[in-house]
């Protein structure tokens, strides 16, 4: 009887918390990711998701010649480092922030317009031996541009 009361409540709480976490990503993106585009005009697009340790997201976008770009990719402080790689249409890796101490921004410009692919991965922390659940939190991706 008691279990039959508790289970539905727990399930509904989980659903509610998932929606709440999503809604929190907008506030997180605005407060933590957007300021890192300082000096650039944010394009106005919004890309954010709740990811767990070890999970990946991908983003496809066309970038244009004659523009300077900055990408800002920021993860919630509960998460380990967020790694991102940038690939061209032939899947050649053009940049990885792993070599830059997981820097959250990258400035770039293009000689000719290209479609690029961003692979964003929340790294896994090594201290799960105690059985802790993997951390999850918002990861926001934003682009700024200016004419060069």
């Amino acid at each position: 009887m008691r279990a039959s009361k508790i289970i539905p409540v727990l399930v509904l709480l989980i659903i509610a918390s998932t929606g709440f976490a999503d809604a929190q990503c907008k506030a997180f993106a605005k407060s933590e990711c957007l300021p890192k585009l300082s000096g650039y005009t944010h394009d106005g697009n919004y890309h954010a998701a709740v990811l767990m340790e070890g999970e990946e997201a991908e983003l496809y976008k066309t970038f244009y010649s004659d523009m300077d770009y900055r990408v800002s990719i920021v993860g919630d402080e509960k998460l380990p480092s967020v790694e991102f790689r940038v690939l061209d249409a032939d899947r050649n890796v053009l940049y990885t922030n792993k070599d830059k101490n997981y820097a959250s921004t990258w400035d770039f410009k293009l000689q000719s317009s290209q479609q690029l692919k961003f692979i964003i991965k929340v790294t896994s922390s090594s201290n799960h031996s105690s059985g802790d659940a993997p951390a999850s939190g918002c990861v926001a991706i934003m682009f700024g541009f200016k004419l060069n």
Binding site: A49, E55, A57, L59, Y60, K61
Partner: peptide, 9 residues
């Protein structure tokens, strides 16, 4: 990928 974003201009 857990999540795929298609970003238009």
């Amino acid at each position: 990928a857990e999540r795929v974003f298609q970003a238009l201009p």
